[in-house]
Design a binder for these strands. Structure first.
Length: 787
RNA sequence: GCCGGAGUGGCGGAAUUGGUAUACGCGCACGACUUAAAAUCGUGUAUCGCAAGAUAUGUGGGUUCAAGUCCCACCUCCGGCACCA
């Protein structure tokens, strides 16, 4: 038995003092920027999910380093935001203090796991020297008119007491505290991400290293739809309502208009309605959080009506919650026979349901025809419906319009623990950006930082901080008191690792060119529609202002599968089934935990933890360790040489593709082969140890030193395969009869059909099977098939 | 409902372009060592069958000399989005 704790301690010390993982800046070398999604340093410390991500990326980075690449493999802390602030509130401490403690703990845990980060490049989003540049980027967005102030209703979490972006919701609830979301008109800073929607969508096609799963999530999230804007006049109010539709072909089936409660048209029409009280009441209710919305709810706007743009007939107008405010124009025309929701509404309010497309409708007991045509549509009858879309849209005075499900990014939070938005409100000059020389705008110290719930940030109460001279007119101004969301720092942090202590710019341009884009980015799937969209957005903005040299930040993306509790299901403190990787490591050693996680399943696949399973990798490592006593300087048998080169090929390819599970299998097969030998040739063993090094860095380095090496195995060259030596000299040919495999014959590699037949004839059993049959197919080195 | 992903032994899983299904590991069984147990080492382990052999990759079809892999239909599970017009 090896003493893992002793080995880990000594080698950690040696790695540290010898700076084994320092980033090489030698531009002659091939480069590898291996980035992991940095964590929010939670009070609970590093969990098994973190471990799986970090270990995977670490295995990759370690192999690249040994292969002679200059490797940038850094780590940092995403420490602003609601979770950090919530934790501090619970502890009744200042977030600055708890964050600091948590980072110390988290960093120690990373080091225990043997992760080969270059700690000289550690970053922290809450460090003023870091968020100075987060604020700087905000100013660039502001200058480019990509940040704007709005008073429109936004998602409001009554528990977190802050406005939230759409991305922060899950099933209409607060993603953090699961409480029902309200709509609240609020002064907000919003980023115009929709301006970049098409580029965010189209450039997905250039990301060959991303999985289709992630790209699909992003495509769906962006939700690009092509349709038309159709104007409906409301003469009595002198107004015109534009509706968005993808189905102008159903215009003749229009039986009402529906407006979202958030539609500005409501304000215009309200004075002309005789039931304005009821409408206002309905509207007010819409802002309150709802568990289950009643199907078909809505109120008629009495005594105002619209004119159908083609037929000229009168169309009633409703206020209805099923129309989403932020999508399209927040107003629709309803064609109940051809839309499920319109149908439900029409049924409830007793409105006409008129079929206008043959076969395509929501009415029961009808079939859907593939080549539908218009019916009940006056002179347009018989027009194919696809064609009718354009024809009727034109007839109605409509125009083409592209809309997105993606909405602009609500970027301000009414909370304390975030980057202050670097703007000043001046009575005379309006909104004035903080001059770049005055950055960072440092988050003020305070004793009480609880959220107020009034729609104002706690910062608003810190008079001494808020009051500031206007940079333009020198008059009295007030600082913007909203802070940035949690996702700000992570939208650009990959650039700071490149040049973490630069005081004049966010990252040196020359260095940026040396390292960007990130070669391989490893993290959780849960960031597919949030961090990964935000970061791509900011990166494109930085590209447009010539701060970065590529339009995409991350070339290859690897997402990790969830580690479930023993026997399946979610780990939770409540069920007491949380697996602490470091507690397990204390018993079996870090290396065994690493090998276990690598071997257990494909990296991106969900997997259940097994306490028993982790014993296997320890056994394996123990065997590798024990074998060193049989190692002698000796010639290697051909068989072993061949297997060795095959193993190198397999493992190299597997690590490159994040197939760690099969890499470990190959390593075990090679180990088992060596174990059968009386004496193990030193060269083979040395190869084994270097192949093992990325997976089990502690034990590998320990053994490496006992083999007489002075320096670390982690700076030793990774084994290179000789393809010609990896070739088998024989081939096993499957003999199939009528599609069934009846046996095999072994022949020299590359043998022709005649040789194979000869071998079959020597085997009486196979000979009997095949004697009267003819050869249908012969594939060299693989198969011979008789019928 | 829409969009993705996946169904292979008792369990986690393996299988270049269709070419010997079940590698590797866990578990289990038996054996060796031991007074004994643990650990370790060895052997075996898809199912049925004494055997020859037959049957097996979610279900049902199809293409092919040959299908886990390709095509069609369906079922189940997981993830994402969801009153998005």
């Amino acid at each position: 038995m090896y003493d893992h704790q002793d080995i880990e301690k000594r080698n950690r010390l040696h790695w540290d003092t010898d700076k084994v993982y320092q980033t090489s800046e030698d531009v002659e070398k091939k480069r590898c920027y291996s980035l992991v999604m940095f964590p929010y340093p939670s009070g609970d410390g590093l969990h098994i999910g973190h471990a799986r991500i970090y270990i995977g990326a670490d295995i990759y980075a370690r192999m690249r380093r040994m292969q002679g690449y200059r490797v940038l493999h850094p780590m940092g802390w995403d420490a602003f935001g609601l979770p950090a602030e919530g934790y501090a509130l619970k502890q009744r401490k200042h977030p600055q203090e708890t964050t600091k403690q948590n980072i110390v703990n988290f960093k120690k845990q990373c080091q225990l796991l043997g992760l080969s980060y270059d700690w000289d490049r550690e970053i922290n989003t809450t460090d003023p020297e870091f968020y100075k540049w987060t604020q700087w980027i905000f100013l660039q967005l502001y200058k480019k008119n990509l940040a704007y102030e709005s008073h429109a209703p936004v998602n409001w979490c009554p528990i977190c007491k802050t406005g939230l972006a759409n991305e922060d919701l899950s099933n209409g609830k607060c993603e953090r505290c699961d409480s029902a979301i309200e709509r609240k008109p609020l002064r907000q800073w919003i980023l115009r991400i929709t301006e970049y929607a098409d580029r965010l969508l189209n450039d997905l096609d250039t990301l060959d290293g991303w999985s289709d799963a992630v790209k699909e999530v992003q495509r769906n999230w962006i939700g690009r739809r092509e349709g038309f804007l159709i104007p409906f006049q409301v003469p009595s109010a002198g107004a015109s309502i534009e509706v968005f539709t993808t189905r102008p072909d159903t215009l003749f089936g229009c039986s009402f208009l529906a407006l979202s409660p958030e539609s500005r048209h409501i304000d215009t029409l309200l004075p002309y309605c005789t039931n304005s009280t009821k409408i206002e009441e309905y509207r007010r209710e819409s802002y309150v959080a709802k568990e289950d919305e009643e199907v078909g709810s809505g109120v008629l706007l009495k005594d105002v009506s619209a004119i159908h743009p083609i037929t000229g007939s009168t169309v009633p107008i409703y206020i209805a919650r099923y129309v989403v405010g932020g999508y399209g124009t927040g107003a629709i025309f309803a064609s109940p026979a051809h839309d499920e929701r319109d149908f439900a509404f029409a049924k409830k309010h007793d409105l006409p349901i008129k079929r206008v497309i043959s076969g395509d409708n929501m009415l029961p007991d009808t079939e859907t025809a593939p080549t539908a045509i218009l019916i009940n549509s006056d002179t347009y009858d018989s027009t194919p419906y696809e064609k009718a879309k354009v024809v009727l849209a034109e007839a109605a005075g409509g125009r083409k319009k592209v809309v997105y499900r993606l909405q602009d990014w609500v970027f301000s939070r009414q909370r304390y623990w975030g980057e202050p938005i670097p703007l000043i409100h001046c009575q005379k000059c309006g909104v004035v950006p903080v001059p770049e020389k005055d950055l960072p705008v440092v988050l003020p110290e305070c004793t009480s930082y609880e959220p107020t719930g009034t729609g104002e940030s706690p910062l608003a109460a810190i008079e001494a901080w808020v009051s500031v001279k206007c940079p333009q007119c020198d008059g009295m101004g007030k600082r913007e008191t909203n802070t940035m969301p949690q996702w700000a720092g992570s939208s650009w942090y990959h650039l700071r690792y490149i040049d973490p202590s630069n005081t004049t710019t966010l990252t040196d341009k020359e260095k940026e060119k040396q390292w960007m884009p990130v070669d391989i980015y490893t993290g959780g799937m849960e960031h597919a529609a949030r961090h990964l969209i935000y970061a791509r957005f900011w990166h494109k903005v930085l590209f447009d202002i010539n701060m970065v040299s590529t339009s995409e930040p991350y070339t290859t993306l690897k997402t990790v599968g969830i580690v479930q509790a023993e026997g399946g299901g979610k780990m939770s403190k409540r069920s007491g089934n949380v697996v602490d990787p470091l507690a397990i490591a204390e018993h079996v050693g870090v290396d065994a935990v690493r090998v276990y996680l690598a071997h257990i399943a494909p990296f991106n696949q969900t997997v259940a933890w097994s306490n028993k399973g982790v014993a296997g990798p320890r056994r394996f490592l123990e065997r590798v360790y024990a074998m060193r006593e049989k190692v002698k300087d000796a010639d290697t048998e051909e068989k072993i040489t061949r297997l060795q080169h095959q193993t190198i090929l397999a493992i190299t390819a597997d690590i490159e593709a994040y197939r760690f599970n099969t890499a470990i299998s190959s390593l075990m097969i090679f180990t088992n082969a060596l174990r059968e030998m009386e004496t193990v040739p030193k060269s083979a063993y040395s190869t084994l140890i270097r192949l093992l090094a990325p997976f089990a860095p502690y034990l590998a380095d320990e053994i490496w030193h006992t083999l007489g090496n002075e320096t670390s195995v982690h700076t030793a060259p990774f084994p290179k395969a000789d393809t010609s030596l990896a070739q088998d000299e024989t081939a096993t040919i499957a003999v199939q009869v009528q599609g069934k495999t009846r046996g095999t014959v072994i022949v020299p590699r590359g043998s022709n059909q005649e040789t194979v037949l000869e071998m079959i004839q020597r085997d009486t059993r196979l000979h009997d099977y095949t004697a009267k049959l003819t050869i249908k197919v012969f594939v060299k080195n693989k198969i011979i098939s008789f019928v």
